[in-house]
Design a protein around this nucleic acid. Structure first.
Lengths: 128, 128
DNA sequence: TATAGGGCTTCCCACCGCTGGAAGGTCAAG
DNA sequence: CTTGACCTTCCAGCGGTGGGAAGCCCTATA
């Protein structure tokens, strides 16, 4: 398989796939002409990576997850811990974003949004 | 005021303040010794920036907000639009994060997290 | 067989918003 | 006179791509 094929199959841009090789997440073979030659296993890995990334795992987490995937004697506890830590991090970000959203929504609601200069949003930022 | 003083006052790291000068958000004067000499107005601007950033506005949005703040003939509608667009963006991110969180929470809940290798998290990522 | 087009390669730069560190000038206290 | 805290500039790097240049390779058509 050439890169465009695994790209379509995995949903990852070719650029991203080359980057993943650069940082050692995958090691596709090379054809005689220098083109990357992806095996089915490479394609599976890329699909795995694509799904892990879409769940928000960092590249380093993905590296660990790949290793755990390939380790048949893994402990599911290790996977769970990684996922739980990530979940906690997401919850932290969610709380932060919610906080932002509520403040902002309140300000937007209070602002007349007309031609006059008076603006509670600016006032809040300036806090004068 | 030297940089450490406005840093403490605004809650922004000195590095960040220098960066803000670099990109033209503030233009503090200079003392004879080459040190930045911040006026009260500079300090106000930095506090404004700090609050705007903590509401998640991008640097470019902050630049616009600063200009609107200083424009006494501004239309509050312009401020409101900026804030509303940002709010919509936050809502988009919140939805995306919620989606991640729910998928991940489900998987974490389903995983035994013990010494055995069977793991629904890995299974989902591998989708074999 | 020549040529046109697409796909592939490597390489380097840009993005955002800082952050760290090195190398060196300045200032106030002891 | 030295120490140490503060300030300066500059350069590099983070994550995770994306854009684009320069150049090779492959296939199809004229």
């Amino acid at each position: 398989m050439n890169i465009s094929e695994v790209s379509t199959a995995s949903g990852l841009p070719a650029k991203t796939i080359r980057y993943y090789e650069d940082i050692g997440l995958i090691r596709p073979a090379r054809s005689a002409n220098g083109y990357r030659a992806f095996s089915d296993q490479d394609a599976h890995k890329l699909a795995f990576l694509s799904r892990a990334r879409s769940l928000g795992f960092s590249i380093e987490d993905c590296r660990t997850l790949l290793a755990l995937w390939e380790d048949r004697s893994r402990a599911s506890g290790d996977v769970r811990k990684l996922a739980k830590d990530h979940l906690d991090e997401i919850d932290r970000k969610l709380a932060e974003l919610h906080q932002m959203r509520d403040s902002l929504a309140h300000l937007v609601k209070c602002c007349a949004g007309d031609d006059r200069p008076d603006c509670p949003i600016i006032d809040r930022l300036a806090k004068d």
